[in-house]
Computed example of a mutant assay.
Amino acid sequence: MPNRRPRGYQPLWKPRARTRELLAAVDRVLARYAAQLPLTIRQVWYSLISDGVVVKEERSYKRLVEVLGMARRSGRIRWEALRDDTEIRAEPIAYAGPEDFRAALRQAALDFRLDRQAGQEVRLETWSETAGMVNQLVTVADPYGVPVYSGSGFNGLPAKRGAALRAAADGHRAVRIFVISDWDQSGVHLFSALAEDVTAFAGVDAPGTEIVFERLAVTEQQIADYQLPTAAPKTSDNRSFTGTSTTQAEALPPDVLAAVLRGAIEAHRDMDVLDELLEREEEQRRTLLHRLGFDAP
């Protein structure tokens, strides 16, 4: 690693042998979870722990952050393979000219879709404590029309009230919210606080609507089944916690998490209803393209 903090691209970076070995192990992790990219750095770290490449110490995580930073700056690892989620964007919409706008209009027509939860008995949502995992969860949930919410919104009043307002706007159909959070004092408290607060708001905004919260990950059973890395509960956190050890949600292998979410969604979907809706969606998309003067793909 360079003595001073690097800036910009670093095409001349020459990692030492020990660092090259670590990067080779990272390559194996990224190849293993190619269908779930981009991964968060913590997901890579936990995979390396499970592979026996690094030990579960904060210094090994900090070193991995530095190495992956240089690996991306040098072009050794693709930028798109990892996700940091430290950026917030607010970009104005603009076009190069009429033809560019027409191309965007065609793409919008190609992207046309119906509400894929229409006709289902239960409306589903997915909430993730970790913002960096959202893209992976969206890959699974989006084909079913299931939205994904994340991050600090768990503790934000507008986000909790928003869940109740969505329930009301949906015609008081039953709602099931899948939650993915750490297995520790904070994650358990977060789950219960979320459920209690949303239910309380819904009691006023959507009275009579059934809202069920289901913890998808991480669970004690998953910790045992997949032998996830654990740590002792924080002694500084006095909130009640029945577990004897803690685990972060990012410790669960990405492909396992994807399978868990897909299974949970399909367990509450009438696939015949969804298939009929998708056929109608495709027919309406073709009609829309024709009316706008575009050829169907």
Score class of each variant (00 low, 15 high):
Glu121Ile: 15
Gly151Tyr: 08
Glu99Ile: 08
Trp45Gly: 05
Tyr95Thr: 15
Ser128Glu: 05
Gly75Thr: 06
Gly156Trp: 15
Val122Arg: 08
Arg73Gln: 01
Arg76Met: 06
Val67His: 00
Pro98Asn: 15
Glu66Cys: 10
Ser74His: 03
Val44Met: 02
Tyr149Arg: 09
Arg63Pro: 07
Ala81Glu: 08
Trp79Leu: 09
Val67Gly: 00
Gly75Asp: 13
Pro98Cys: 13
Gly153Asn: 06
Gln117Pro: 04
Asp85Pro: 01
Ala118Trp: 14
Tyr144Ala: 06
Pro92Val: 15
Pro147Ser: 06
Arg76Thr: 08
Ser150Asn: 03
Trp127Val: 13
Arg63Asp: 08
Pro143Gln: 06
Glu57Asp: 10
Gly75Trp: 06
Tyr149Trp: 12
Glu99Leu: 09
Val65Tyr: 06
Arg161Pro: 05
Pro143Cys: 09
Gln136His: 06
Ser74Trp: 03
Trp45Glu: 03
Arg78Thr: 09
Tyr144Met: 07
Ile77Tyr: 02
Val55Ala: 11
Val134Gly: 06
Val65Thr: 05
Ser50Pro: 05
Arg123Ala: 13
Tyr46Met: 01
Pro158Gly: 03
Ser50Gln: 02
Val65Gly: 07
Leu165Ser: 04
Gly69Ile: 14
Trp127His: 15
Ala96Arg: 15
Val134Ser: 05
Val54His: 03
Gln136Asp: 05
Arg123Asn: 15
Val138Lys: 01
Leu114Pro: 02
Leu157Ile: 11
Gln117Asp: 05
Arg166Asn: 14
Ala109Thr: 09
Asn155Cys: 05
Ala90Met: 14
Lys160Ile: 05
Ala141Met: 04
Gly162Tyr: 08
Glu80Ala: 12
Gly132Phe: 02
Ala96Leu: 09
Ser128Val: 08
Ile49Gly: 01
Arg83Glu: 08
Met133Gly: 02
Gln120Asp: 11
Glu121Phe: 13
Val122Gly: 13
Ala159Trp: 14
Ser128Leu: 11
Ala141Thr: 07
Leu82Lys: 03
